[in-house]
Write a protein that binds this DNA or RNA. Structure first.
Lengths: 209, 209
DNA sequence: ATGATAACTTGTCAATGTCAAGATATAATT
DNA sequence: AATTATATCTTGACATTGACAAGTTATCAT
């Protein structure tokens, strides 16, 4: 959060609004989002965000786009120094999940087509880049393990699994909190690794897709 | 949707409100939900839903619970007359996806912990039943294919995959609409089958979880 | 120094969810 | 059958919200 403004101009309101929005989303989920509350937290009047983002959808879309940017960065970094394709895929899965846990506000929006504008060039750019990183990693695995597999489908499935993993993680967290259960959950890194092993074994065993 | 009331009492307002809510959710997604709009569609005043559901969260929770009920029913029916565990798992995956497509309004809420009350007994009952059906099916597959696999983890992963599949289906649908793309998408049934094959192959190849 | 403009504030409005009092008609009791 | 209780709804009010438009501030360009 930027320091409080002492002049008319905030100084970096664009940044402050995205940060405030991500914080609010992290605390209350998308259902508790309020543009006025974001403005209050950024220390400006309720209509100030309109200049930077147009409407509420504009701000939410910018947060989602930044989420995909974080994801892309995390994916690239996770693969550095890792040469084995199977290990790279595992690293990506872990990176995705860790990004989501580190940025819950961003993550809560990235699949929300009812809240985010599909026309945003920034959103498309970053979501496409993230997807393509995954596509390349899946292709490298397939080449080594089973060149006959359909790479597009395998990538979609891989993406689906990780999205679903986040949903299940939310489910398990919410249920654990509601029930006070003391059942130890596997760590998300463990689950991510099981996921990527499943995917690799699935690709290996796949006759066709 | 029930027929319009001609007396003071609606006759089956509880049912009409759930139907109206599911329709509205299906049209606008959760982000476009409005309790007053639901009441308008049901032909009653804006405060009438409070008697049946308390607040907006109460209505949304009831819709989500009904979604899990639909899911459970679809799962059970899909397995009838199917004896092979692997085929049963494929049937479940398809049933889940088909239920979600048939009931988009319900489906849009089933993972939304920011909108739904975890304290609802009805929600827990139906979500637990659905989960247990899947658990049994996964256990049957594991017993045949690889008794060493951790059934709880495999079930969670299976659940995660299907949740993620729905997310990806939404993604692909939204992106196709936004870009006017003419790339043919695989049918969701095809993808569900690939999923279950992946899961089964993954379980088969799994050393441990 | 002056004018243009980006960046904000203030004010207004319609729509929203919630709450509480009031009204209706159905069920239960006498 | 008449009266009372109660489930079920309506009306009205209020605070909050997103959006829009006019007004204000201070920074930039000339």
């Amino acid at each position: 959060m930027s320091s409080p403004k002492s002049t008319y101009h905030h100084g970096d309101l664009h940044r402050a609004l995205i940060d405030a929005a991500a914080d609010l989303l992290s605390e209350r989920g998308a259902g508790g989002f309020s543009l006025r509350e974001v403005a209050r937290r950024a220390g400006v009047s309720h209509a100030a965000p309109a200049h930077h983002f147009g409407d509420a959808t504009g701000l939410l879309t910018a947060v989602a786009a930044e989420g995909f940017q974080h994801l892309h960065t995390a994916m690239i970094e996770s693969m550095e120094g890792v040469s084995d394709p199977v290990d790279r895929l595992a690293a990506i899965a872990r990176a995705y999940v860790e990004m989501a846990i580190a940025h819950p506000g961003h993550s809560s929006l990235m699949g929300r087509h009812d809240l985010v504008s599909p026309d945003s060039q920034l959103l498309r750019e970053w979501s496409t880049r993230a997807y393509e990183s995954l596509h390349e990693a899946v292709a490298a695995v397939a080449e080594e393990v089973n060149p006959e597999v359909d790479i597009d489908n395998a990538t979609r499935l891989c993406w689906a699994m990780v999205e679903g993993l986040l949903q299940v993680h939310d489910n398990m967290t919410a249920m654990a909190e509601a029930s006070g259960a003391d059942t130890p959950l596997p760590t998300i890194g463990d689950v991510a690794e099981v996921f990527s092993n499943l995917i690799v074994d699935g690709i290996r065993g796949s006759d066709s897709a």
